[in-house]
Nucleic acid binder design. Structure first.
Lengths: 365, 365
DNA sequence: TTGAAAGCGCTAACAG
DNA sequence: CTGTTAGCGCTTTCAA
């Protein structure tokens, strides 16, 4: 960061006269020789306005590229036409982490929100501060909230839901929970993945992930139950907690290796974690999948392109994102919404030794 | 996607009575036995209000967890306290792509925007539709725009800037450009990367990237000039266009290999592209870096964890993001802003054969 | 120090 | 079919 940035040519001149052109509804009305109300009606497609009048107004609107001020409109109509997405993990350790899984989900949410003609406010409010989430709607900035990942915010989310605030969260379904969630079947997904590893003849399987996160806890249950089904006793030494960041996973895996525990497979709670784990393994001269088989979770785009290609539990971000949005709009409209748990799919590629070809794409779809 | 989602328990009840609690400034005023104006003044920290009164008001505000409606406030004050980030590439081929580089940048932008006390609207408007970008501010939804990547929108961006609209774009500095950009020194970055490859003894270097994108065109210039400096004539057969998506890069690389051209190195225009290229190479039994050295661009987090670890040109998203925001606020405040070009840094790791250790971290920082 | 009144730009009754 | 009249919730002169 040494050199100091090189500044170069630029713009600037019409700075102040920016909003100058701001033509408003009254102006259009005057020009069309009608009242503001008529313009408003014409623009909102009301049937009670003369076709000829409407055309005249329309023309004026186009030629002056007038747009109604949604801020004023919202103030009057009582809504904002925007919804907020809160990504807790954007905050892990005070610096933005970037798990590709979330961007994929975010992308689909953005699509769905746009389809509804709404805007999307991206908020950095962490899950610790659910009051901040409440502010977003109390303050009239958004009509509803989508939280990606409940992690430590469970209680706060409960409170928001109790207040009747439109809210949907991506995450796990907890026992007594009163807010709506969308998420994949973490338990079943993990169980299937671990069963697959066992089917490959692996017996000493590492669990790589932090169980304080609800979803991860469920995955751990799946892990345990798959082991149990094969008559394997979980070894506490193979339960390795790690955060979602690459560096954290790398460190965790390295110390496991250094610890000298023996193992022949790793179930990682995200693809990013899996990739870092493989990195650590290979640095120690261990071969994947020959010496250690690895399975990830998420099926991010890069999973298929890693070396070796990653066996992983796919979470369907496309339908997940859309569902999140649909359920939120249902709530906003006052309709009831119920949580849904999406099925997962195990995508077998090279890293688990289950497929010999390089890039395997799942059968379905 | 077969099974059909399993619906489960849920919430719902206080749906309608949601906004019920919506206490407004008038209510607080009444309770405090003062007028709306006084409350407004007290809340905005005006010095012309009795300390005792202010305290009383403050107490009421807290106990009722009242928040001023920013929508109404903005309408009155003439601003929105929110800025929009438009990500064109979110749209490539009608499905959200997820280049981690953009999320990293977005994360930093989000940080900086939050530091200014502003909200961040994430928009999916593509670069083809700059009129849509204009709407965001014409319509009173945001105070200014940050566009990530100018790609095909150059003309449209020019027009917006000419209208005096607060706007900053992440991208390349084009010749006669009138809008403000922040971006890395693409030409120098690429040049250094390719020179490094040449220094490793490579002579036939593939250029992997689409030159229709301004930044990429500059990188190509850097590529050519590095070759020229070594007395190497660029071979058109080694100029391989590809989009930023993993799949596209994979395909491009595969057909290059199938085409039978000989080459011993690849300069990829993004890390995601580099990763896919390596994948294609290895699928054909070619070893990286032994047979083919590869250099990427961006230094996304995963670059250090790939196998082999990626040599790449780092773009500093942290200062980039902050600069983008600072320059935008300068414009909003009516101050002049000039484009800035950030220096880049070559991070040498294993994929180029320049480093033997696994995960090498750059010297600086 | 505080209140009254006039809007910000728009929509929604309520009369024509 | 169209105009008038009130506001949505807040800030800001202008007076007191």
């Amino acid at each position: 960061m040494a050199d100091k940035p090189a500044a170069t040519a630029a713009t600037q001149e019409g700075q102040a006269r920016a909003k100058m052109g701001a033509v408003k509804m009254d102006d259009i009305a005057r020009m069309a020789g009608v009242s503001k109300s008529t313009v408003s009606r014409a623009l909102s497609g009301s049937p009670l306005v003369n076709e000829e009048t409407r055309a005249r107004i329309q023309a004026l609107v186009e030629s002056h590229s007038y747009r109604v001020d949604t801020r004023a409109q919202g103030l009057r109509k009582g809504h904002t036409h925007t919804i907020a997405v809160v990504i807790p993990l954007l905050h892990e350790h005070d610096q933005p982490i970037s798990d590709p899984f979330f961007l994929e989900l975010l992308g689909h949410i953005a699509d769905a929100v746009a389809d509804h003609g709404y805007d999307l406010l991206l908020s950095k409010i962490g899950p610790g501060r659910t009051d901040g989430m409440a502010d977003l709607v109390d303050t009239g900035r958004v009509d509803g909230l989508i939280a990606i990942g409940q992690s430590t915010a469970h209680l706060g989310l409960e409170r928001l839901a109790a207040r009747g605030m439109p809210l949907v969260v991506w995450g796990a379904q907890l026992p007594e929970q009163h807010y709506v969630t969308v998420g994949s079947d973490n338990r079943a997904g993990a169980e299937r993945a671990v069963a697959h590893l066992i089917a490959q003849g692996r017996q000493r399987i590492v669990f790589l992930g932090q169980r304080t996160v609800p979803e991860i806890r469920l995955r751990h249950e799946g892990y345990v139950s798959a082991l149990a089904a094969a008559g394997i006793e979980p070894d506490p030494a193979l339960d390795v907690p790690t955060r979602f960041a690459s560096a954290a996973a790398l460190t965790a895996m390295r110390s496991l290796i250094a610890g000298g525990s023996s193992f022949d497979a790793v179930f990682a709670c995200s693809d990013v974690i899996a990739i870092s784990a493989i990195r650590a393994l290979q640095d120690q001269g261990l071969k994947v999948p020959e010496d250690v088989a690895v399975v990830g979770y998420d099926d991010i785009q890069m999973a298929a392109f890693y070396n070796p290609a990653l066996t992983t539990v796919r979470q369907d971000t496309a339908t997940g994102g859309r569902l999140l949005v649909d359920l939120l709009f249902a709530q906003i409209a006052g309709r009831a919404a119920r949580s849904v748990m999406l099925p997962t799919e195990l995508v077998v590629r090279a890293s688990s030794g289950g497929a010999l070809s390089g890039t395997t794409t799942p059968g379905s779809r």
